[in-house]
Amino acid sequence: MGAAMTEAGLFLLDLLLVLTLLCLAWWSLAATDLFKGIVLFIAFGLVLALAWVRLDAPDVALAEAAIGAGLTGALLLTTLSKLASSIDNPPAKRSSPVLLWVLLVMLAAVLGYAIMSLPQQAQGLADTVASQMGNSGVEHPVTAVLLNFRGYDTLLEMAVLLLALIAAWSLAPRAATSCEMDEALTVSPIVLALFRMLIPLMILVAAYLLWVGAHAPGGAFQAGSVLAAAGVLALLCGKRLEGRLAGWPLRLGLVLGTAMFVAVAAAVMVGGAHLLQYPLASAGKLILLIEAAATFSIGLTLAMLFSGQRPSRGPAS
């Protein structure tokens, strides 16, 4: 009786999650007001994180909530605030509804076929991963896959993040000098109080997520995005990098993660191993080293993406 009721309750919860996701996605896309669209997108990300929890994927849920909803939302909002003056939303030109429907049906057919052709009971790679866990140097299968078995993918992801920042910097104008900025910015004392209380906690949480990644959900990307959130909060409080840190120390921090990854990946080859094939005895330490550097760089890169401007090297305020 009790088990059946729990089952039914969970089914209802899942149904509610799916319906909410579909509605939020539709409203977010259909919103003519960009601000409303972004807020709905953030809500969509948070509900999606819940859906990942229901799918027993807490790692993905953490990443979705922190990066998908949180930081992407912040990036979209800051972009919108920069767009506001230059664009006044011309009404979208509607293409023929017949064409639209044909495309929609085709897309649905392809996706439906893809889902239907999946095997009912997939073996997946879970058993393979489980049997190799002893060789990974960590105890959490997701971290083992991301940093060891498929380390190459994560290495390239780090490089992509760096490329994104380089692209953003090459498009954006240099930051205004610090004097101009101070005039434009009046920070509420409430935000400053929040800043003082939350920053130490956020740094602590980032360190915890990094450390716990070895044996439980967590890791560099989640930790890095918490660090980036601290950076975003600092930027919102009007804190800027000092001029003497905005030059090569900043650039060093940005490439540290990728550089460390490449260095470790290449260094193990000296001992005759393949690229990224960590020696078993030190695998855990090497992974922690890479993840610590990656966390720092991810946090810095995402915060810099939020500010959207190359910090000026002028005298500090």
């Binding site: 509420s188 409430i190 935000v191 109080a193 929040l194 209380m197 939350l198 906690l201």
Partner: peptide
């Protein structure tokens, strides 16, 4: 406690 902090902060900001 954290939600209260964030809620109080965000509430003040929206009102402002």
């Amino acid at each position: 406690v954290l939600v209260m902090l964030a809620g109080a902060g965000a509430g003040q900001l929206v009102a402002q």
